[in-house]
Amino acid sequence: MKKLLLGTVLLTATAGMAAAQDVVRIGTEGAYPPYNFINDANEVDGYDIDVANEVCARAELTCEWVTNDWDSIIPNLVSGNYDAIAAGMSITDERDEVIDFTQAYYPPDPSAYAGLDEIDVTSAVVAAQAATIQATHVAESGATLVEFATPDESVAAVRNGEADAVLADKGFLVPIVEEDPDLVFIGEDVMLGKGIGIGLRESDTELKEKMDAALASMKEDGKMAELLEKWFPGMDPDF
């Protein structure tokens, strides 16, 4: 059965050979609203998706979306399971060593602490999603870091008392804090990373050029500002 299935897949894969080659598969996490999430109709949705779809339209690429666990999102890119990452991924030096980034499509934005009440975030227990710039920052700040696989779980940890505060992108936390009377922002925002870019394999220079050009044209004609206003109302669109 298994061999049969694999055989069928191999056959179908070979049969589709003649079709166009410029399909770009884009990986996303699908668990970080409003950057990227799976909406109620079971489709990927959010700012990352809108931006990348517009990039694909301008660069005349056919794009398809793949959801992947955050932890293995970079390994699956470099081993070729998809060709790009649009998952609210901040550009950092560490990641830049393994993969390449396009220019930023979201400004270097503040990360913020949210918790139940005012505490000293350098000595508290702070939750963050594993393998994020926020987790690195918490570990360096002297606070006790508790890591979670998904952003939602790191917020849930604060609600049920497992952690005193959560550190995440402010764009992600604003709607959550606004709608939950128990949660407040704590202390000052911290600036981390160099903005959010589309992640690409280092060897994929051609795709990088195409996407960079599309992003630049979106910034020029105001499309980017329009999408920013749609998903992050009130944010300064100037960058």
């Binding site: 894969a13 393994v98 394999r201």
Partner: peptide
Amino acid sequence: SDFLVCAEAKLPLNTA
């Protein structure tokens, strides 16, 4: 760290 094969060798093909 990149694993690169030609587009025709991808499994399944990107176009699938």
